[in-house]
Every structure is written in C-alpha cells, then in structure tokens.
Amino acid sequence: MKKLIVMLFALLPSLAMAAGPAVPLDAANNDLSDKASLQNGARTFMNYCFGCHATQYQRYERVATDLGIPAELMKENLIFDPNAKIGDLMTNAIPTEYAAASFGAPAPDLTMVARVRGADWIYTYLRSFYADPSRPFGVNNVVFPSVGMPHVLEELQGVPSKVYETRLVDGKEVQEFVGIEADGSGELNKEEYDAVVRDLVNFLAYSAEPMKLERQRMGYWVMGFIVVFFVLTLLLKKEYWRDVH
C-alpha cells in the first residue's frame, strides 16, 4: 500500500503537465443534427487538415452518406487521392517519418480527437494561435504552448497576435493577456472565422462518434419500453397477489 501511495505522488507532476495550462475554454456549441455545418466542416477538414492528419477509422462512403453528400460530389471535391475509392478508409499520403522530421512528432490521427480532447478544447485551440517568431513555424498557441503545428487556417483568419491590457495591481501597472486578435489580412472576419472553426469542430465531433444521434434516438425508445414494461409488470404483480391479500 505504501509503495502504491509513493507511485501516485511520483505521477502527480506528469499528470499536471499532461493536463496542460489552465486556460478557460470557449463553448463550441456544436450541433450534430446540422448537416450544413457538418458538410462545411468536412470541406474545411479535407482542404486544410487532411494533408497531415488522417481520420483513418472512417470511410469516405460512410461520411458522404451520414452528411448527405452525393457520392459523385464526394469523389470530385473531397477525395484528393486519384487512386482512392469511395469505400476506402480516410488515410493520407504523408509518411510518418517525414511528418516526425518536419513537425517534431508524427501528425496524430484525428478520428477520435473530439472524444480525447473535447469539442470545446479543439474550438478554443484553433482560435488561440498567435504570431511568435521564436517558433519554427512562426506561431505559438495559448492552449498548447510550444505547439509543433503550423497555423494552417492563417489565410482565413489573418496573422493573429496576443492582445494585452494595462491594469493596476497593488498600485503597479501590469500587462494582462485578454485575447487574440487578427490583423485583418485574412479572407474572413472574426465572426466568419469562428463559424468556420465551429463547423470544423462539429465535423470532428461527428467523426469521433458517428452513431451518437442514432444512439440517442434509440435511447428514447429503450426508456419508453422500460416504462411500459414496468407498468405491465406492476399490473401483473397486483393480479398475482390479489388472491393472497
């Protein structure tokens, strides 16, 4: 028992580091029933993320069916590998060794990232890049410090920078970080960029659990069956015990 307690205390620092910095997360407010949002998210993912990150545990055909995308449109606009078929798994062509050499670590598969990190974390993360010339790709991230990933959505957002406000603390002026602000060079304004990120997060949330809505619908039927079965059982019990009483 004493050894177990010692091991737990030894693990506390590593667990704290794994938890990451205590950054307040913004609500993604994703809606898996919004097909238009999911379609836009799939388009953004395939155009900006799929070059490095795969979702190798789902298939093009399943995504097209679930999101209401005709198979021909899927093949023409969202399948970039000329050798890939509509029924193939969604893997990309970047070699693991090349990705590790370029980014410091292999680019992780994102099929389950929304279940591992949470939709709010991803939404906040993608909106928390800021310019940092000291980093290899010229950007850093508030949620994930010393991030090895480039800001792939920069052409949409523009060049983001940290914003500080001067406040008095104990009579001294202190620069306090208040948020991220783009320079306006991107294709989208702040509201439009946030909407694109929300759609992308919505797609990743769908990828992590494609059956979630179906499971929830089935759950209502199951609960209804249990209620009806309980009532019938109660009535049957009263019928059996009527003669006893």
Results as ranks from 00 to 15, higher is better:
118 G>A: 14
193 Y>G: 05
204 L>F: 11
44 T>E: 03
227 V>S: 00
201 V>M: 08
44 T>I: 14
90 M>D: 00
104 G>P: 03
214 E>T: 15
138 G>P: 05
137 F>H: 07
16 A>E: 06
63 V>P: 00
223 M>R: 08
197 V>S: 05
207 S>N: 13
70 P>L: 12
175 Q>T: 07
18 A>Y: 12
22 A>F: 05
109 D>A: 10
14 S>L: 13
5 I>S: 02
20 G>Y: 12
35 K>H: 06
178 V>G: 03
169 V>Q: 06
111 T>H: 04
138 G>H: 03
12 L>P: 11
21 P>V: 11
189 N>C: 08
70 P>F: 10
232 L>A: 11
198 R>K: 15
222 V>N: 14
101 A>D: 03
87 G>R: 05
202 N>E: 07
239 E>M: 15
30 N>Y: 03
22 A>K: 10
235 L>V: 13
76 E>Q: 14
221 W>K: 11
215 R>Y: 06
46 M>A: 13
54 A>K: 00
129 F>S: 01
30 N>A: 02
186 G>D: 05
153 L>F: 01
79 I>M: 13
228 V>S: 07
145 P>K: 09
177 F>N: 03
51 G>Q: 02
166 T>P: 08
139 V>S: 07
164 Y>I: 01
40 N>V: 06
59 R>F: 01
34 D>Y: 12
189 N>K: 04
41 G>Q: 11
80 F>R: 10
165 E>N: 10
113 V>P: 01
103 F>W: 04
38 L>P: 05
169 V>D: 08
198 R>L: 01
125 Y>I: 02
221 W>V: 12
214 E>Q: 10
164 Y>A: 02
140 N>M: 14
168 L>I: 15
197 V>G: 05
106 P>N: 04
106 P>D: 09
10 A>F: 15
127 R>H: 09
184 G>I: 04
24 P>K: 06
83 N>A: 15
160 P>S: 00
59 R>H: 11
101 A>Y: 07
74 M>Q: 06
217 R>Q: 14
82 P>N: 06
